[in-house]
Design a protein around this nucleic acid. Structure first.
Length: 367
DNA sequence: AACTCGGGGGC
DNA sequence: GCCCCAGAGTT
């Protein structure tokens, strides 16, 4: 495969570089496996700078396995609000509850046991075992695949599972005796700070001397990655409903379904529309009124256009029109997953970011 | 193997 | 706009 000299040069120099240049990150200040675990789940597909404030709040609110295991799920979701991929939060709490009950609150050190926990895949299991327990397991994420694909000039599509398996085998071989914790973090640190996706800083790289991509002038064209499909557009009409009578000063919100996109989070009532019906505001408001009556049995009166807003997920793009609305009759019956809430109560409910933006635009202040 | 699942930062 | 980010689960 690759020469022992090339591999050793990589491991030795990368490790030395990391110990001199590593960033002072909150989750590097202890080896608490539970805290390492939280950080690794938050960091999935999420930047370090984004995670830092969430990590501080989360570990303060749920400082131990027991604290998170005993917390109401809605509190956990609220603490995750804005971070995205909310199944991460639900899976984390579910897994922490299993650790609490089955393992006495001790994060397991066996690969099979930790890998069986919800939300703990190949990367996260390796990251926890190596970083917290210094076990010689690979932790291959996007950073690592970029670094390895360049240094060893690997031209396989990193989106393919088979490529990740190959990278894990290689990464495992690179771990020197007793250095797994620092080495795995060093790989990711190099990818984040030096071997960046565009314009890598090769002149400051500790392993430039034997980097194959650098030798071939290919560092900018690796790794190879197939393009993702563009998100599909969806048209949605939103009713921003202000209460009257006994509900004066309150807004009508509803909880999303238990499964699927943004599961169990709260939102403003809205409907999806077909492009054929996506016409004038008057036509959209009529459709909004009729559909909410048919689908939810609530009598809403859309009154005036308020805002157009777009929100892009990984696979869907919501194009939304928001209408100021009222109910036909104050105090009317509403379905069980609906709720009238005042401005002070809104802070207890977890909302997807797009609805936070809408409510902020309406109220002129953060909710 | 393809799809689902958020949101933001950097260029 | 586009890409990518300390990915995992489901089909």
């Amino acid at each position: 495969m690759y020469s022992e000299d090339k591999k050793r040069h990589f491991s030795v120099n990368l490790l030395e570089w990391y110990r001199a240049h590593k960033r002072d990150l909150p989750w590097r200040r202890s080896k608490n496996p539970y805290h390492i675990w939280i950080s690794e789940v938050m960091l999935q597909q999420t930047r370090v700078e984004t995670v830092i404030p969430y990590f501080h709040r989360f570990t303060e609110q749920f400082p131990t396995v027991e604290a998170l295991a005993n917390a109401p799920e809605e509190d956990v979701l609220k603490a995750w609000e804005g971070l995205g991929y909310y199944s991460r939060a639900r899976n984390l709490q579910s897994a922490v509850r299993e650790v609490h009950e089955r393992y006495g609150g001790i994060v397991p050190q066996e690969k099979e046991e930790i890998s069986s926990l919800k939300g703990v895949g190949p990367y996260t299991s390796g990251a926890i075992l190596s970083i917290a327990y210094n076990k010689p397991e690979p932790a291959v994420d996007g950073n690592v695949m970029r670094v390895l694909s360049r240094y060893f000039l690997i031209e396989e599509d990193i989106m393919k599972p088979s490529t990740r398996v190959k990278m894990e085998k290689l990464a495992r071989e690179l771990i020197l005796e007793g250095t797994a914790s620092d080495f795995n973090q060093a790989l990711m640190e190099l990818g984040a700070m030096v071997c960046t996706p565009r314009s890598p800083h090769c002149l400051t790289c500790p392993v430039m001397a034997q980097c194959s991509a650098r030798e071939e002038g290919m560092e900018e064209s690796l790794p190879i990655k197939k393009k993702a499909k563009p998100p599909r557009p969806e048209l949605r009409a939103v009713a921003f409903i202000e209460g009257t009578g006994e509900n004066e000063g309150k807004w009508l919100i509803r909880q999303r379904p238990q499964e699927g996109l943004l599961a169990r989070m709260w939102e403003l009532p809205h409907i999806q529309m077909q492009s054929a019906a996506w016409g004038s505001d008057q036509e959209v408001m009529n459709e909004l009124k009729d559909s909410l009556m048919q689908q939810e049995q609530i009598a809403v009166k859309p009154a005036s256009w308020f805002l157009d807003i777009e929100h892009t997920f990984s696979h869907i793009q919501w194009q939304m029109k928001v209408y100021r609305s009222q109910m036909n009759d104050a105090g009317e019956w509403i379905p069980f997953h609906y709720r009238w809430v005042g401005a002070d109560e809104l802070q207890q409910y977890a909302f997807p970011n797009v609805f936070l933006r809408i409510m902020k635009a309406v109220s002129g202040s953060p909710v």
